[in-house]
């Protein structure tokens, strides 16, 4: 690792001030950033740890019944504390990485990084979540902007994510066994006003909504409704683990499994 100054603010205001320094970088749970720093892929002047800020941690329910999760909340806490309110989201959080990764990694870090194979982006997009930062609110539909790209400005911090709770939902993941990241995973949710289906691990553009499946499932939430539906291989990731055609095939399989698990 290159040398850097380490800042550990205890309030959001202090964190904002520290991040205003030139080449300062926020550190969430560090489960992606620390390995990147070791590989010298990043060279921040100051690393601003967000792990000591109580005001951006925790799980609660707001007046509209939405599940609200602080940006600095770990996957382990979401798996435990959201289970009674949004089981599909808690189940997703409890299957990220391994137990030690879940003790440190946070929802804010995962969303801000927007890895094309991460688990939280499809949950946010598939739930139509609202992402709250220190300065504004961003709809999940406007948040993800391609691989490792988001609508966040330099130094902007995710303070909270609000999830409307669906009638039924499920996250189905086909894990790449070495990395434990999804090779392809699908978050499918049935809301009163329609279905949402979000896909991770597949597209070269990162997480996306499979609108053809959403239309079919909105009128008929059943496995049969998506039985004949095929995702396009065009624009899918091809690498040593899977071809674009195989990933497109898995989108259909994971979607059907997700719907079946809710019935």
């Amino acid at each position: 690792m290159y040398e850097f100054e380490f800042a550990r603010p205890t309030t959001l205001a202090e964190a904002k001030a520290a991040l205003a320094e030139e080449d300062a970088q926020a550190l969430a749970g560090g489960q992606t950033l620390i390995p990147s720093l070791k590989a010298r892929l990043a060279m921040p002047s100051t690393l601003v740890s967000l792990s000591g800020i109580p005001e951006i941690k925790g799980v609660c329910i707001d007046d509209e019944g939405r599940v609200c999760i602080g940006g600095g909340t770990t996957h382990a806490t979401v798996a435990r504390e959201a289970a009674a309110h949004y089981p599909a989201l808690a189940s997703l959080a409890g299957r990220i990485g391994d137990p030690a990764v879940r003790s440190r990694g946070t929802i804010g870090g995962s969303l801000a990084n927007n890895d094309p194979s991460a688990c939280y982006p499809p949950a946010a997009l598939g739930s139509g979540a609202l992402i709250i930062t220190d300065s504004r609110e961003i709809a999940a539909d406007d948040f993800f902007a391609g691989m490792f790209e988001t609508a966040l400005e330099e130094g902007e911090i995710i303070t909270e994510v609000r999830f409307p709770v669906p009638e039924r939902a499920r996250y189905e993941k086909f894990a790449q066994p070495a990395s434990r990241f999804p090779l392809v995973a699908v978050f499918a949710a049935k809301y009163a006003d329609g279905a949402r289906v979000a896909v991770t691990g597949a597209s070269e553009e990162g997480v996306f909504r499979w609108t053809a499946a959403e239309e079919a499932l909105s009128s008929d939430w059943s496995v049969e409704a998506v039985e004949e539906l095929k995702a396009e291989a065009d624009g899918m990731i091809g690498d040593i683990h899977a071809s674009p055609e195989y990933r497109a095939h898995l989108i259909g399989v994971m979607t059907r499994r997700a719907v079946a698990a809710t019935l």
């Binding site: 560090g30 489960q31 620390i34 390995p35 000591g52 382990a76 030690a100 440190r104």
Partner: peptide
């Protein structure tokens, strides 16, 4: 491995499992 893959460095921080190669000492203050 020093890359948070292998778990040989696993310790407990506040009773939770953590890979000690993927946490800064300053964060354990």
């Amino acid at each position: 491995c020093d890359t948070s893959q292998c778990g040989a460095c696993l310790v407990h921080v506040e009773d939770a499992p953590v890979k000690a190669c993927s946490m800064f000492a300053a964060e354990a203050e």
